[in-house]
Each structure stands twice: as structure tokens, then as C-alpha cells.
Simulated scan of single mutants.
Amino acid sequence: MNQFQNKFNQFMRGRYGNDQLNIAVLILGVILSLISSLVRIEILMLPSYILLGFMIYRAFSRDYLRRSKENSWFLKYWYPVENWLLRQKRQLKEMKTYKFYRCPECRQKIRVPKGKGKICITCPKCRTEFIKRT
């Protein structure tokens, strides 16, 4: 095992390897492949093969600068999506104990505890007061 690992490490030396873009391309390729096999639409297999081939090409590429630029471009668009997904996940967790409202003036999302009856809510951003039932 150690000999194989050494040979693989020697082979990968100077190559780009994996990054977030490769992982995203791999996941997308596997999802397309699964959809293709479940729905029995063979035409979806071609894009999944292309994506998987692109991922392998990027992993074994020696052009470090170009691959890192591609990854930074991907991350520029991925991070806002990831942050939105994390906020939605947190809000779903907190739905048992909190209610969420939007300020009628500035549209700021406000979290208030559930079960307090009718309360006066003050927006922390614009100081607008409005009454809601929790």
C-alpha cells in the first residue's frame, strides 16, 4: 500500500488536484447520471460524461494558474448561493421557537419569539414600529 501511495503522490506532484469547482462538477455529473438512469433518458448521459471528463482533466492538469482562476471565478458565484442556503437552513431550524417578519418600511427580516401574543415590533434598522401576533 505504501509503495502505491508513493507512486501516486509522485504522479500527482505538479498537478492541480481537487478543489471546490471539481467537487461541484462531480456532484452535477453524478446527479445527471442518476436522473438519466432513473428517467431512462439516454441523452442526459452525454453531458454527465462530459462533466466527469472535465473534472478529471482539471484534476490532472499542470496549468495551476488557469485552474485556480477557474476555481476563484466559480467561488465568486457560489459563495452567495451557499450563504443563502445556510440562512434558509438556520431559519428552518428556528421556525419552532421564532416567527419571522419583514419590516414594512425597509424590508429588513426580523426574528421574534413565538407565543407572546400581539406585540409591538421595532425594526432595528429603521426604528419603524408595527404590531404583529406571534
Rank of each mutant, 00 (worst) to 15 (best):
P124D: 02
R90P: 00
R87Y: 07
Y77W: 14
C120A: 12
R87M: 11
K116R: 15
Y16S: 05
G117P: 05
P104I: 07
M12A: 07
P47S: 09
R15V: 06
R40L: 11
Y98K: 15
M55V: 03
I43K: 09
K7M: 11
Q10H: 13
L21W: 08
R66P: 00
I43N: 03
L28V: 13
D19Q: 06
Y64G: 11
C103M: 08
S36T: 07
F4W: 11
Y98W: 11
N9A: 13
L86C: 01
L34H: 05
L86T: 11
S68E: 15
V112Y: 01
N9V: 01
I121D: 05
S36C: 12
P104S: 06
S37W: 09
Y49F: 13
R66G: 00
S68M: 13
R107V: 00
C126K: 07
G117C: 08
E105H: 08
I110T: 05
S68Y: 12
K93V: 12
R40E: 15
Y57Q: 04
P47C: 11
R15F: 07
P80I: 08
G117V: 07
L75Q: 11
L46V: 14
K96H: 10
M12F: 08
P47K: 11
E94N: 13
T122A: 02
A59T: 14
Y79P: 00
R133T: 14
F130N: 02
L21M: 14
F4E: 08
T122V: 12
A59H: 04
L34Y: 06
N18Y: 13
K89D: 07
F8I: 14
N71D: 13
L85P: 00
R133F: 05
L32H: 03
K93I: 13
N71E: 09
S72W: 09
R62M: 12
E129H: 09
R133W: 01
Y77V: 05
L28D: 02
P124M: 03
P124R: 03
Y64C: 00
Y101L: 10
S36V: 03
G115D: 09
Y101G: 02
R67E: 05
N71Q: 10
M95A: 14
